[in-house]
Amino acid sequence: MLVYTAKRLLLAILVSLTVSALVFSLLYLSGDPATALAGERANEADIQAIKAAYGFDQPVYVQYFKWLGGAVQGEFGQSVYFRMPVIDLIVERLPVTMMLGVSAMIFALVLAIPLGVLAAMYQNSLIDRAALLLAVVGQAMPSFWFALMLIVVFAYWVPILPASGSDSWEHFVLPTIVLGYYATPAFMRLTRTGLLDVLSSDYVRTARAKGLSPAMVLFKHALRNAIIPVVSLAAVQFGFMLTGSIIIETVFALHGAGFLAWESISRSDFPTVQAVLLLFSWFYIILTFLADLLNAWLNPRIRVA
């Protein structure tokens, strides 16, 4: 287990470094970042001033290592638009995104796991078909459109929920539903197939033959094993949800890190964009690393491979 952990950790660090280099080089896609930052109306003196202020006059690799060194210590420079340290902005906005991510994850799991279990237990029944329909519709529903339609219905036609903002828990209800529903189909399908596999296994047959009650067989024997892949999917899905939150937060004007990313992109606030992009990527890398470890701990066969 120790060797496996060390190997995985090394890989995660290498991936983090590569990703940071990619995120950093994104700024140079435009050619000259100083000109891009200065905007269209800037003159030559402005551009030189920006070059000196942001260190663009130094060699690229020096800039990169300075930036990375700062990033590791949580220092991402100044936001061009807000005129305050990027890290303060992110610390201020991140709780909203985390709150949305966690509540959407709970919503998805509470909806998907019981449905997946029912669908597997009563295969090809009405409930199985309904669950399948819910999954197929969920996969085809563009989340931003679903969000707008929910706003039409629950904020205008039947005005019981606010359409935008992030002041109270009511503001999180619609975003949670949209983001949670987006993650539901994957969980449901995995629960269903996992449980179907386990239910046809020998030890479940033995448990049944011993005369255990169906509930006992389901909860003590089958579900425990069927749920393992769902746990690791949850880690990966949580990372995807953070990305999805960019669209959802923009639609609902929920002031989280995703909304900050979109605002900063449309204002050419590159230091903030880079910081959010890097943090989201690193967060995903940490989540998958933990999921790998969890999987290896639950399933010893992975450790040797």
């Binding site: 994104l26 990372g239 990305t243 990313a261 050419s268 992009l277």
Partner: peptide, 23 residues
């Protein structure tokens, strides 16, 4: 495998938004 892992850890929406905004 390394390239796939790197690619997966970059959020598609955020990267494409940023690239399109720049170019």
């Amino acid at each position: 495998t390394f390239l796939i892992t790197c690619r997966l850890s970059l959020p598609v929406i955020l990267v494409s938004l940023a690239v399109v905004a720049i170019v």
